[in-house]
Design a protein around this nucleic acid. Structure first.
Lengths: 152, 152
DNA sequence: GCTAAAATGGACTCCTGAGGTCGGATATCT
DNA sequence: AGATATCCGACCTCAGGAGTCCATTTTAGC
């Protein structure tokens, strides 16, 4: 439960990659798809949504591709998820949408909405640049570590 | 996205109700189901899971029903959700389960797991008693508020 | 002891929506 | 002109969530 959609996964993967390699110019959808073994047509749709969400810019034609629209540290994980999957909701209902059988009798809306806000905060507090920074240690020095320190 | 399952909703609804009315003894599944317009057989399954998760105790036979197994302030929303839907995961993979096409090439696991921990913290920080306490103000004083203060 | 009302448990159906596919139009470089 | 991109809509498939049905067991009250 509470799992991210595949689309969101793919979007974050792509965003991180573009953030880490922003030095090179635009990167094509196909190249990204091959790098991460993602169905290319599907990734293409995801990238299109990111463009419409103003997180990426695209250049068409040969040698075209996608690039971040702004510095990676000004794009949050929440931005990415919402661009791909729409406004993220924890409950079926929201301020706008009361389409829930139990809406009238429901008594846990307010506390759950508060929890939702905390979740969004957590997602908004993490930027794409932080995702990229995380792999600063891609393969830690292998056989220097004493065996005793290895857990399981 | 990131939405709770209906089962989790029902579970929280029921837990809150039992917490608010713990003075009366056990409450039957049918009575709860009627109160909140929930299919009774479905709610029954949810309640059974809560029993197996040690959050509720059940008494069988006529005049039987369910009651909280411990004080409501010692049961968190996270407990309830996990009892009903199993361990809550944000990503397809976890420490135990690597069944994801992209696992080897994935580079956003660690930051996402950290986000997951923050989400779990948010859920663990809210207790069932807080859910119940929330309705202390069921209908706030209506026409005392100056119209100018109402935001559309 | 019988019966009614409750929990318990398994198996089954229904159906939405996530995940993925296909084809074609449009733009741009060589 | 042709190759390689993005772009866009329509479509297909299928696992899993949501809900149903039924058979069994337990227990209070008569």
């Amino acid at each position: 439960m509470l799992r991210l959609s595949k689309k969101a996964d793919y979007a974050l993967l792509a965003m991180r990659h573009l953030a880490a390699h922003h030095d090179r110019g635009a990167m094509s959808s196909r190249e990204l798809a091959e790098t991460y073994d993602i169905p290319s047509e599907l990734l293409a749709k995801v990238l299109q949504k990111l463009v419409r969400g103003r997180l990426l810019v695209s250049v068409q034609g040969i040698r075209g591709g996608y690039a971040l629209s702004r510095p990676a540290d000004r794009i949050s994980v929440a931005d990415v998820i919402q661009a791909v999957d729409g406004p993220l909701t924890v409950t079926a209902c929201s301020d706008a949408d009361h389409s829930c059988e139990q809406y009238s009798k429901c008594n846990i809306r307010d506390p759950l909405w508060r929890i939702k806000d905390r979740i969004i905060s957590a997602l908004a507090a993490t930027s794409v640049s932080e995702l990229a920074a995380d792999m600063a240690i891609p393969t830690p020095p292998p056989d220097v570590v004493p065996l005793a320190m290895l857990r399981k």
